Simulated scan of single mutants.
Amino acid sequence: MASRWFASLPNLITIGRLVLTPAIIGFVIDEKWGAAFALFVVAGVSDALDGWLAKTFHLQSDLGAVLDPLADKTLIISIYVSLAVGGNLPAWLAILIVSRDALILGGVLVAWFLARPFKIRPHFSSKITTAVQIVLAAVILAGQAFGVRIGALEDALIASVAALTIASASVYLWLWVQHMRP
């Protein structure tokens, strides 16, 4: 019984991240920055932890392969949109992030409709992009929570997130085009 529970631990952690996302967004909307920051850090650490557990102990599963990116995208898109709506991040950055994910999802759906399924495997560029997106959101939330904004750091992270998001979208688009060639 214990081994079955342990085998499910990465998926349970991922589900926890999904459950935390609405709470984080609620705290952002209510401008309860300390709580939003604390829960966001927990969610960010859970992203690293579930992946580490799955790889280290060979606990990868088909469910985890779907849930983990879903939890990541739910958290990232939700936090960026809510921070942009609140004027804490540039709206264009949230639009860029949402557009990249829509591009990837659209490509997968088109390939599926054309009976040429395209299995998305996380690319290295995507993993770095997600990590930097999490760091930027955490910096913005921490700045709000503790009343300390570091403009130069935020500007550098915004530029990095934008560049990495574009690079990652380009990689996935190139892979999709290669897959869809006759």
Rank of each mutant, 00 (worst) to 15 (best):
M1F: 09
R4V: 15
W5M: 09
A7S: 08
A7H: 04
A7P: 00
S8M: 10
T14Q: 00
T14H: 00
L18W: 02
T21C: 12
I24G: 09
I24C: 06
I25Q: 01
I25C: 06
F27Q: 13
V28W: 02
V28Q: 06
D30V: 05
D30R: 04
E31V: 09
E31F: 00
W33A: 10
F37N: 10
V41W: 01
V42T: 08
V42Q: 03
L49A: 04
K55D: 12
F57R: 09
L59R: 06
A65K: 12
L67G: 01
P69G: 14
L70V: 15
A71S: 10
K73F: 09
S78A: 15
I79S: 12
L83H: 05
A84R: 04
A84S: 13
A84W: 02
V85P: 05
L89D: 02
W92S: 14
L93I: 11
I95N: 06
L105E: 10
L105W: 07
G107S: 08
L109E: 08
W112I: 13
W112R: 11
I120V: 15
P122M: 09
A131V: 04
Q133E: 12
V135G: 05
I140T: 10
A142H: 08
G143S: 04
A145I: 04
F146I: 02
G151P: 00
A152T: 14
A152R: 06
D155H: 05
A156G: 07
L157N: 08
L157T: 11
L157C: 12
A159D: 05
A162L: 05
A162Y: 07
A167K: 08
S168V: 01
A169Q: 04
V171Q: 06
V171K: 04
Y172E: 14
W174V: 14
V177P: 03
R181E: 12
P182Q: 15
P182R: 15
